[in-house]
């Protein structure tokens, strides 16, 4: 099943040369894609377009097989496809880890009990058991990264867009992350500068260059 498709998308930030030109991209359930590209090639921009955080100047975005134009159209898509931001500081806005992880599940309308189960389960899987009451801004960089992954996974998405997930993780944490991802049923698109990591974890690696994806 097709989760996301971008068709002939053009995008430029205000007053800057275009980043993406006629870009086509799709992610289906069961796919695991890696995306490589030089700095400033528009990798994060691509993800933001997929989830409606930015709107393309030309082209179309399809989510779950339906054309998405307005904020409303993207809401259903965001339940199915999570997004791990490049900077965990952007993602963790609550004071405690448990609250942050529970935020998504509560937004989905799951009750408190179920949300807390998901908090415990997800943190446990990521090797963060006992982190529930930790204060988010006192976590180390690597811990923040894993907790922000937990906030995404706790919503039980079908796919995730991962923006440099292994960045800033030590070997042990990086291995945990890889194991959790590989053991899951998730599909993903993953941006990284680490080609070896992409080749281990993805079925295909695409290169974003000159505003387009090349296989």
């Amino acid at each position: 099943m097709e989760l996301i498709r971008l068709q002939g998308v053009d995008f430029a930030y205000d007053g800057r040369p275009p980043v993406l030109r006629g870009l086509d991209f799709s992610l289906s359930a069961g796919q695991r894609l890696g995306i490589l590209g030089p700095n400033g090639a528009g990798k994060s921009t691509l993800f933001m377009l997929c989830l409606g955080l930015l709107r393309p100047q030309a082209g179309a975005v399809y989510g779950l097989g339906r054309a998405c134009r307005e904020e409303r159209d993207f809401r259903a898509l965001r339940r199915e496809v999570g997004y791990l931001f490049q900077d965990p500081e952007d993602q963790l806005f609550s004071l405690t880890v448990a609250e942050d992880v529970a935020f998504g599940p509560l937004n989905l309308g799951l009750g408190r009990e179920r949300a807390l189960e998901l908090v415990d389960g997800t943190l446990g899987k990521l090797g963060l058991a006992g982190f529930q009451r930790r204060v988010t801004y006192h976590l180390s960089g690597g811990e923040k990264r894993l907790v922000s992954l937990a906030t995404v996974l706790a919503m039980q998405p079908r796919a995730v867009l991962l923006d440099e997930p292994s960045n800033g993780l030590d070997e042990e944490r990086s291995a945990t992350l890889e194991r959790v991802l590989m053991d899951s049923e998730l599909s993903w698109a993953m941006v990284s500068h680490d080609r070896a990591f992409l080749e281990r974890t993805c079925q295909r690696v695409l290169v974003l260059k000159n505003g387009r994806l090349q296989g």
Binding site: L51, F93, E99
Partner: peptide, 23 residues
């Protein structure tokens, strides 16, 4: 800039105006 990104991250997790209290 950060406030923009924080808001985007919240939207991605289904934020619709409700802050939840856990404790």
């Amino acid at each position: 800039d950060r406030s923009e990104r924080v808001y985007q991250a919240m939207l991605c997790r289904g934020f619709a105006g409700t802050f939840w209290l856990l404790d």
